[in-house]
């Protein structure tokens, strides 16, 4: 009896809930859609929207704070010291610029749009814009260069800074060679002492000590040493080859910045200006 009861009850319930569901879908058939026709209509992007980064190079002092804050190491900055005779002007915040920024690349293929690079900037020259449609067929084209110097200028500034540095180094070496050597070794000295003060040393097998930060196999080895150098307050280690002719976009194209035409992923494999149209395709 009761099983027959539940049998019919189940059938009734089945029909009733099906009808309820049909009522809901029928109601929605006549409610206006919530979606929009994307390329024609767009959702407003809020003021705080975090999309493509933009760097206002007029204000950049080349301090590499953003590069250090970046968790994925997508910002590559190289600077060259300006000569005392050169005047680079001041930023809009009134800070005096002292460095030529010879390379300022942001690889948007790596960027995770976390926005961590924005707050540390002392001159507020790096910020996120509302541009989010910048797909490329070639991944290398997502590596944007923001510098305002032409490649030749950048190379020249680097050479010039190198020469000045060499001069200063020669002077210094003549004065006190030993002191300079000690200073260069300083960043390596920091980490072993950290290792010594590790608290749970007994709980962690000593066979797998934590790699020293300065020589850590960081995801971006190309960036890391540079950061270490900047932390120690040294002049950035400037090498000539990566910048030579990398930048193809013209200096006056400030906004929106043009993507770099040439692969920067593996500069050592490419001869500068070998194939300015891009090599991957």
């Amino acid at each position: 009896m009761s099983s027959a009861d539940t049998y019919f009850k189940n059938i009734g319930k089945g029909f009733w809930t099906v009808l309820l569901g049909m009522k809901v879908t029928m109601r929605h058939l006549f409610t206006p859609a919530v979606t929009i026709q994307y390329p024609d209509a767009r959702m407003p992007i809020p003021e705080r929207g975090r999309n493509r980064l933009y760097v206002n190079m007029d204000d950049c002092i080349g301090c590499n704070q953003c590069g250090m804050a970046c968790p994925v190491g997508c910002i590559t900055i190289e600077t060259a010291k300006s000569l005392p005779t050169e005047d680079l002007g001041v930023t809009s915040t009134g800070q005096k610029k002292r460095l030529w920024v010879t390379q300022f690349d942001i690889d948007f293929a790596k960027c995770c749009y976390c926005g961590l690079c924005v707050p540390p900037c002392p001159t507020e020259c790096i910020y996120m814009t509302d541009v989010f449609e910048f797909s490329e067929y070639d991944r290398d084209k997502l590596n944007y260069s923001f510098i305002t110097l032409t490649p030749e200028e950048a190379a020249q500034k680097t050479e010039q800074a190198k020469a000045a540095e060499k001069e200063a180094a020669a002077k210094k070496a003549a004065a006190a060679a030993a002191a300079a050597a000690q200073k260069a070794a300083q960043p390596q000295n920091v980490t072993p002492s950290q290792n010594v003060t590790q608290p749970p040393a007994q709980s962690i097998p000593p066979a797998a000590p934590r790699p020293a930060p300065a020589v850590a196999p960081a995801p971006q080895p190309a960036v890391k040493p540079e950061i270490a150098g900047a932390e120690a307050g040294q002049a950035p280690s400037v090498t000539a080859e990566p910048q030579g002719g990398q930048k193809v976009s013209s200096p006056e194209s400030v906004y929106p910045p043009k993507p770099q035409e040439q692969a920067t992923r593996a500069p050592q494999e490419l001869k500068p200006n070998d194939n300015p149209k891009g090599s991957a395709d």
Binding site: T25, M26, H28, L29, F30, T31, P32, A33, V34, T35, Q37
Partner: peptide
């Protein structure tokens, strides 16, 4: 079209 409109799409 019907499925879309039932689901608040177009």
């Amino acid at each position: 079209k019907i499925s879309a409109h039932m689901q608040d799409r177009v």
